[in-house]
């Protein structure tokens, strides 16, 4: 599903965030991306939605080049990749339902279908009863649930998360992890950048470790170990 071929990213100011990264992630995998702060995790995840373009190398999603993609094709790529941010990125003036419906309006669904799908996903992420709440009325964990719901409501084959539990306590993190795990069980590929030692060690999924922009470890059922 995801293929990186010798991907290098050098920012305009000269910072090299990724250096010669090659890897493949298969359909249905659950991958933790770990590494010290500044290792290049965010750069990696944002490349998957073409928010950041590599300076060298090739990225294929389902065999299609993300790099050579035309600008007008980008929205359609993004509909196939759900993205969850550390800071949720919810719209404060819209209710929980509206925040989730947002992603379906963009695709052009009718009101009935939107309502049906939104209600289903609200149940999945455990937000029943909060449909009419505004983000500021929710806890961090609940807000992250909304963000996840928005990311998956469109049934994307790939779900990418950049430190989704970075601001949450361990208990809440576990709840969020359960949601990701469930979605992954249903066939969605999950790529998650995280600092969350506890979760990585608990779930025992594939772990890719970055250090100064290079892959230093790629292990099936790996742990967090000593990430520096």
């Amino acid at each position: 599903m995801i293929q990186f071929f010798n991907v290098t990213k050098q920012y305009k100011n000269g910072n090299v965030a990724l250096h010669d990264v090659s890897l493949a992630i298969k359909n249905g995998e659950f991958v933790f991306l770990v590494g010290a702060s500044g290792a290049g995790k965010s750069t990696f995840t944002h490349m998957l939605i073409r928010e950041i373009l590599p300076t060298e190398g090739q990225i294929l999603l389902d065999g299609k080049s993300v790099v050579r993609m035309k600008n007008r094709e980008v929205p359609f790529l993004r509909r196939k990749v759900g993205f969850v941010f550390q800071d949720y990125q919810l719209l404060q003036k819209r209710t929980v339902s509206e925040n989730i419906a947002f992603a379906l309006e963009v695709v052009g669904l009718g009101q009935q279908e939107i309502t049906k799908k939104v209600n289903a996903v609200i149940e999945l992420v455990g937000l029943v009863g909060h449909e009419k709440s505004y983000p500021e009325q929710l806890s961090g964990g609940e807000q992250q649930r909304v963000a996840i719901a928005r990311a998956i409501v469109n049934n994307p084959p790939l779900l990418v998360a950049d430190e989704p539990t970075g601001n949450l306590d361990p208990e809440t993190s576990l709840e969020i992890m359960k949601i990701f795990n469930t979605i992954n069980k249903w066939g969605t590929t999950v790529v998650m950048a995280t600092h969350d030692r506890e979760m990585v060690n608990r779930l025992r999924k594939r772990v890719i470790q970055l250090s100064f922009g290079e892959i230093v470890r790629d292990e099936e059922k790996g742990g967090y170990y000593n990430v520096r």
Partner: peptide
Amino acid sequence: AQEIRVMKFVGATNWY
């Protein structure tokens, strides 16, 4: 600005 940003992340086209 934020709304537009999020719109783009969830796959809104420019004309949308």
